[in-house]
Computed example of a mutant assay.
Amino acid sequence: MMKKQPKLTVVGAGPGDVELITLKAIKALENADVVLYDALVNPELLDYINPKAELIFVGKRRGCYRYQQEQINELIVARGFSHGHVVRLKGGDPFIFGRGAEEMQYAATYGLEVAVIPGISSSLAVPAYQNIPLTKRGSSESFWVITGTTKQHKLSNDVRLAAKSNATVVVLMGMGKLSEIVSLFKEEGKSELPVAIIQNGTTPEEKIGIGTVDTIEEVVSKNNLSNPAIIVLGEVVKHRQQLADVKQEVVLKSVV
């Protein structure tokens, strides 16, 4: 029997809704010999994996790491040479704060063939599911997507720069830094800027809190919002209510 070519395919699983994975990603799962998957991957997606493939959970939950990143890298290479096609299944898009690029680079240095299948990023899809566009004529001409916590476990300085702009600002993994984030926006005189925080976006457990820079911490406390969540700051947050108002007007007119 001919030995299989060692290969790594890094696959984006999307933000949570099982239907938001691509056809190309499903085909990769069907052809996998080994699948390493993360905690934020919808368990229903495991049903699409080649039944003969080895499944290995390598995610973290509540700060508990089953595998360190170095171990994951080594596991990818080892399974590539022993089994063949390794699929690294990651939540959202693996090239947006997902370490997909790091894993591919590591595997390539050991001679594995590498490929990536992009996923729908939660930074785009989660606000969209709540009718919050990241850009809208007259409200926002651009958007920033920023990690809330850097490698040094500090708030990214890009948040300070973004607070000075008129762009929509999306912060991932930022709930632990929420007080620092709102302080930066208050310094820029943006206390009344609309803010949305969406937890478990695109899943049945989705929760949302809407407020302003001035009130959002109270909203979080009242609604018991926590990670995994996305923070959206910008005038575009108003679109959600504007759309709801339009729908209500249509309903009232139809009744009359």
Rank of each mutant, 00 (worst) to 15 (best):
Q5E: 14
L8E: 09
T9W: 08
V10F: 03
P15S: 05
I21M: 03
K24M: 09
A28T: 06
L29C: 07
V34D: 06
A39H: 03
L45A: 07
L45Y: 04
D47G: 10
L55E: 11
L55C: 10
L55F: 08
F57K: 02
R61E: 07
R66F: 03
Q71I: 06
N73D: 10
H83L: 10
H85Q: 08
L89N: 02
K90V: 02
P94H: 04
G98L: 01
M104P: 07
Q105P: 06
Y106E: 09
Y106K: 04
V114R: 02
W144N: 05
T147L: 04
T149R: 12
Q152D: 15
L155W: 03
A162H: 01
A167M: 12
G174M: 03
M175L: 14
S179Q: 15
V182T: 12
E188N: 14
G189M: 12
K190T: 07
S191K: 11
V195C: 01
I197T: 06
Q199V: 05
P204Y: 05
I208D: 06
I208Y: 03
G211H: 09
D214Y: 12
T215A: 10
I216L: 13
E218Y: 15
N224R: 14
S226F: 03
S226V: 08
N227Q: 12
P228A: 06
I231C: 04
V232Q: 02
G234M: 05
G234F: 01
V236A: 03
K238D: 15
L243F: 11
V251E: 15
V251Q: 15
L252G: 11
